[in-house]
Design a protein around this nucleic acid. Structure first.
Length: 573
DNA sequence: GCCGTTTTCGGCCCGACTGTTTTCAGTCG
């Protein structure tokens, strides 16, 4: 059973209880428990069977009992009972911006509204304005919220938010009343998807800055405007928030608005334990309210007895404890990668020649690139027949002779067939510098069959690496339900590298699996899966994921010299 | 509902903005 499945149920309970009007702290307890399970690195089933649930912080007797029931029966009576009391459609209403549990409950009790469709009709008929706390403007805002929800379905991919956010910051940098500026929020943490872009600035003229902010050419609509916080919606439906603070609070605010929420809660608790109070304006002595720190993030972390924690680590996944012991990893740098292992050329379904890919790679500062075209059975992608493999190897050999200080590896992304065998014979596989095994067909498989399929591929002695291990496509295809612990163990035994596929809609392995790999001693390989040279810079997002998984240079094949890589892959000189 | 060398009961992170009010509740992050 997936941990996510259990976490989703607990979050659903929290939402339902919220609408029922339960006390805030009870519903929060369910959300905290859900989060604890989401970041859990081991299988929740194992924890249940070994009776260790209550040893997880945030899970007590009552929730442990419910989790046990979910794991053992696949369902939960309590949830069934709640759903009888609270119509399920009300959960959809919570997704609408500006609607929370109190208002949703009000709509249900007074107007019997249980779906977005009914809500829209009620708004259009002006039925909401007579309810306590509602008005004409609320009706209009709800209608807008519904339209937005239908258009966006929530979150943006990292690359979209990254380029929108950085463009916006460049625009703001031109304004002389802004003293300091930074991206904050989940974008600074480089999370795989971004709900909205947070930008933080320091200035002594906040109102003027907000005015300038709202005049950005890509702004469709100003959602709210104040002197500390202003939100706008861009034409591509991404929301951007700007906060403006005084210089001496910039570090505290940056820390606070970078999050994650869970990291901040842990930080605040730690501050309280040490006799301080931490908020977005600074770190203060609890008794005297005396300002202690806040100009930089570093001084706040240090005052609390912690090493500086990189934004990518701030997810409350053990970073505070490790920072206390001064044992945080020295994360791989964004310029620490020497080449891309996963690139398709026009020999299969890519858009560029091997020469073009090599030239651009060299311009990016790389010392190597690996061309990994598809294998023969993937006809739709013009996979290479065995005869064409020999031709391609010959071609790359010739190109390498002409290159100074740059190496083109000849690889393949060889299809792993449903039974776990490879799409090329060992005789052919042997000829490549690097063999990725990758799944491109038959995605509907149960956990044990899918795990066996991948394990069998990794056990092939000519397979060096596993491409996009869970095969997810963010927003479009669910990941394989895999026994990740077994995958990790076999990867370790067979010296198989697991890929972080850097393409923004894959980012596969994802951060928590990367961290698991590191803890299991499994090495990682980075590739963009580019089919056009324009996407080679997506490597940045793969590195971000590596950093979110606590990886250092030594954990990643791409950081080694060409000579060392050849040795590690067993390439014939 | 969870948690605890300040507590097994009484806390639980907290500030900004909006829209509704006429001092505040709800929502958001």
């Amino acid at each position: 059973m997936k941990n996510q499945f259990v976490a989703d149920i607990l979050n659903e309970i929290a939402d339902l209880l919220d609408i029922k009007g339960e006390i805030f702290f009870k519903t929060r307890a369910y959300r905290i428990a859900a989060q604890a399970i989401e970041v859990l690195e081991e299988d929740i089933e194992t924890v249940v069977h070994e009776d260790r649930l209550t040893s997880i912080s945030g899970i007590g007797e009552a929730i442990a009992k419910k989790i046990t029931e979910i794991v053992e029966t696949g369902r939960l009576e309590y949830l069934k009972k709640l759903k009888k009391e609270v119509p399920e459609g009300l959960l959809d209403l919570l997704e609408i911006q500006g609607l929370g549990p109190k208002k949703v409950a009000m709509l249900y009790r007074n107007l019997g509204i249980t779906s977005i469709k009914e809500l829209r009709n009620a708004c259009l008929q002006g039925k909401l304005r007579d309810l306590d706390g509602f008005g004409v403007i609320t009706e209009q805002n709800i209608l807008r919220g519904i339209t937005l929800l239908e258009k966006t379905s929530g979150r943006a991919l990292l690359n979209v938010a990254f380029s929108d956010g950085n463009d916006y910051v460049e625009y703001l940098k031109n304004y002389d009343k802004i003293d300091a500026i930074s991206i904050a929020g989940s974008l600074r943490r480089m999370k795989e998807t971004i709900g909205d872009v947070d930008i933080l600035a320091s200035s002594n003229h906040p109102d003027a800055v907000m005015e300038y902010f709202t005049r950005y050419p890509d702004v469709d609509r100003v959602l709210l405007q104040g002197s500390t916080k202003t939100s706008v919606l861009l034409y591509d439906n991404l929301q951007v928030d700007l906060r403006v603070v005084k210089e001496k609070s910039f570090g505290a605010a940056l820390q606070y608005f970078t999050g994650s929420k869970e990291h901040n809660v842990a930080m605040r608790s730690l501050a309280i334990k040490k006799g301080y109070k931490l908020n977005e304006y600074g770190l203060f002595e609890k008794e005297t309210e005396k300002y202690v720190a806040g100009k930089t993030e570093e001084e706040i972390y240090n005052k609390l007895g912690l090493e500086y924690i990189e934004p990518e680590l701030r997810e409350n996944r053990g970073e505070l404890e490790t920072a206390k012991k001064k044992q945080l990893p020295k994360l791989v740098g964004y310029n620490g990668i020497l080449g891309d292992f996963h690139v398709h050329s026009n020999w299969s379904d890519g858009g560029n020649s091997i020469e073009e890919i090599a030239t651009i790679s060299k311009n990016l500062g790389y010392t190597f690139v690996c061309i990994t075209d598809h294998s023969q059975s993937l006809k739709i992608a013009n996979g290479l027949s065995e005869a064409r493999v020999d031709k391609k190897i010959k071609k790359i050999k010739e190109l390498n002779k002409k290159m100074d200080d740059f190496k083109i590896f000849c690889g393949t992304e060889c299809d792993i067939k449903p039974d776990g065998t490879m799409d090329y014979s060992d005789k052919i596989l042997k000829k490549f510098d690097l063999v990725y095994g990758g799944i491109h067909t038959t995605f509907k498989m149960d956990r044990s069959t899918a795990t066996k399929r991948i394990v069998k591929a990794m056990e092939n002695k000519y397979v060096h690496a596993l491409a996009h291990p869970t095969c997810r496509i963010i927003g479009r295809r669910e990941p394989f339900d895999l026994d990740m612990e077994e995958i990790m163990d076999v990867a370790k035994e067979t010296d198989t590298f697991l890929e972080i596929n850097a393409f923004p809609d894959r980012l596969d392995l994802k951060d928590i699996h990367v961290k698991l790999a590191k803890e299991r001693g499994v090495k990682v390989i980075l590739g963009t899966d580019s089919h056009f040279i324009a996407t080679l810079p997506f490597m940045h997002f793969g590195i971000a994921t590596a950093r979110r998984g606590w990886l250092e240079k030594k954990d990643i094949l791409n950081t080694y010299s060409t000579h060392d890589i050849e040795k590690m892959l067993g390439v014939k000189q």
